[in-house]
Amino acid sequence: MTDRTVDAPAPRRQSPLIGALKAALLLRESIVGTVGALIILFWVFVALFAGLLAPYDPIAQMTPFQAPFATDADGNFFLLGTDHLGRDVLSRIIFGAQRVLIYAPLATFSAYAVGIVMGLLAGYKRGWVDDVLSRVSDIILSFPILVLYVVIITTFGASAINIVLAVTFASGPGIMRIVRGLVLDLRNRDYVAAAQTRGESMWYIMFVEILPNARGPLIVDACLRLGYTTITIGVLGFLGLGLPPPQPDWGGMINETRAMATFAPHMTVFPCIAISSLVLGLNLLADGMREVSLRD
């Protein structure tokens, strides 16, 4: 008996990282999900090694209006050509990936932080807390989303942090609704009652007993929402409300060159492809995750 106590392996938790990796490997079973993951990994790789991959400085001005595969008088080769100010399109797309892959996740994460807390409170507390939070989110959601962005950014000015704030403000209520719905179901589980009967605090129950069990649908939604945010940042750039120039920004690149798209389409088309491929990758990944999670 005593030996057994000594020998018995200590209860150890599986590292969450290993758990996540194992779950990620399951994705191999979905072709769609794998393709999505590869596209995203490609952009992450590009963003990480932008300094090494980009042939030129993204704001250096060289020969304008070079077509793809062109070599200018100085002997510079431009794989995707140059824009109206003579900046290398490829280098700008590569550095643009860095920005979008920093700000889109940051904005999504921030929206999730707000949405989750609101959703947990509304779904778990019910009563007037729910009424107030739900009405507030209804009001925000009743605005056309683009108008909301324009109002916020023009009021507070175009900067990276304000883009994050605007996205949080606009998509937080949507996330809150999803979380609230999940909590309404989960709060009636017996393990929540068990936690209540041992006198756990509200925050412990919300964040330890309920939230981890809502993660499945939330992860899929986060993937999709990351795609929307990427588009949003592009749209804001296109409307001139994005990151201030001359920093490379995919939406901004399209905006600056769209008037010239008829005679130099490459300046507009390549940033468009960059945005859509990233969004497509995120959507495929979300589809794949849903597919794998539904499979028996």
Binding site: P11, R13, Y191, T197, R198, G199, P212, N213
Partner: peptide, 22 residues
């Protein structure tokens, strides 16, 4: 609280799925 505890009905609901049993 400790002297009054409960055993629940649904075995699939009684434990938090994302926490180890121990």
């Amino acid at each position: 609280l400790g002297s009054l505890q409960m055993v629940f009905q649904n075995p699939n609901d009684t434990l938090n799925p994302s926490m180890s049993v121990g």
